[in-house]
């Protein structure tokens, strides 16, 4: 579901590295001043855009007396790890981390496995109905999360899957599999037919062509779509919120959203520390894809 999926296409990250320190290579008189202006704008923009992230981190390291002031402190005067300690001990961070890990990794692995075969079929073969399947795949990944939530909840609750890891995992597979197929299909399409035909000439069966030739070549795509699927499932809130009622089954986002003190009060320092802990892997992953894709991605067949 793209509502929860990161707004991620892969081509955009693919391109800034190249040596094209763009347009402004020649320093004509005309462009010198605008460039100075551009840099000023860029600095202002960066400060504005990074500020919420900065404020989260800043608050996370502040003792409460410095966080809860009507006149903000722009850096922690007495930096403390207390908030992180609170985040770890409030509820059961490690349990929620484990829950998230189980459900998310299960959904990712399942989606990759199923998606790999489906993507191969949809990219390396022509058959009747292929186009319709592609259209359906495109359409379903646009569905609003709340629309699927109702029937999934009703069906899953009748067959005892609500409140279980498997149930949540399947809901995530439904959300990310179409997208995974779409991403990996792009990678399959980038592999020249000659590679496949050469293997076939050597007498390889379809299965062998797939497992020995195509799958290894499509590994970057597996990684890319795996990361996308991870981010989408890791970030989901509303499905887990509706499916997982027992606190011991919460995933990290549900825990984060319900992060309160024992008195049900909001502890902003702890909440920000928890947000840092929760966001960290995702931001790291974004950095990783960034690098991976710059080199590994052919001009993207991948859409959001």
């Amino acid at each position: 579901m793209t509502t929860t999926a990161p707004r991620l296409s892969t081509d955009e990250v693919s391109d800034h590295a190249p040596a094209s320190a763009p347009t402004a290579v020649k320093s004509t008189r005309r462009r010198k001043r605008p460039r100075w202006i551009s840099h000023t704008i860029a600095v202002v923009f960066s400060i504005v855009w990074i500020f919420p992230v900065y404020w989260m981190i800043n608050t996370a390291f502040k003792p409460r007396t410095e966080a809860m002031t009507s006149k903000p402190e722009f850096y922690p005067h007495h930096p403390t790890l207390h908030n992180f300690a609170v985040a770890f001990t409030q509820g059961d961070f490690l349990v929620y981390l484990r829950n998230s890990a189980i459900v998310v990794s299960g959904a990712v692995v399942l989606s990759i496995l199923l998606g790999l075969f489906a993507a191969a079929a949809l990219s390396r073969f022509r058959f009747r109905g292929r186009r319709s399947i592609m259209v359906v795949i495109l359409v379903v990944q646009m569905l609003p999360a709340t629309a699927l939530l109702i029937p999934q909840f009703l069906i899953f609750s009748q067959i005892g899957l609500v409140g279980t890891y498997v149930g949540l995992m399947l809901a995530y597979v439904a959300a990310v599999l179409p997208f995974t197929i779409w991403v990996m299909r792009g990678f399959f399409l980038a592999i020249p037919m000659e590679v496949e035909e050469a293997a076939r000439m050597d007498g390889a069966s379809t299965w062998q062509v797939l497992t020995r030739v195509l799958f290894p070549l499509v590994m970057p795509g597996v990684i890319a779509s795996g990361v996308f699927a991870f981010i989408a499932a890791w970030n989901d809130y509303i499905v887990a919120y509706t499916f997982m009622q027992d606190q011991s089954h919460y995933t990290l986002p549900v825990w984060l959203a319900s992060f309160t003190t024992q008195t049900s009060g909001t502890d902003f320092g702890g909440q920000m520390a928890a947000s840092v802990l929760f966001s960290l892997p995702v931001v790291v992953f974004f950095m990783i894809i960034q690098r991976n894709l710059v080199s590994g991605m052919s001009a993207g067949a991948v859409k959001g």
């Binding site: 909840f153 609750s157 009748q158 005892g160 609500v162 409140g163 919120y241 509706t242 499916f243 009622q245 027992d246 606190q247 011991s248 319900s258 309160t260 049900s264």
Partner: peptide, 23 residues
Amino acid sequence: VQIQQWDGITTKISTALATSTPP
């Protein structure tokens, strides 16, 4: 024993009671 938060409790209880393994 599961400790529940007050926020959104109606949704929590109603959905939990609907499952085949309610509290």
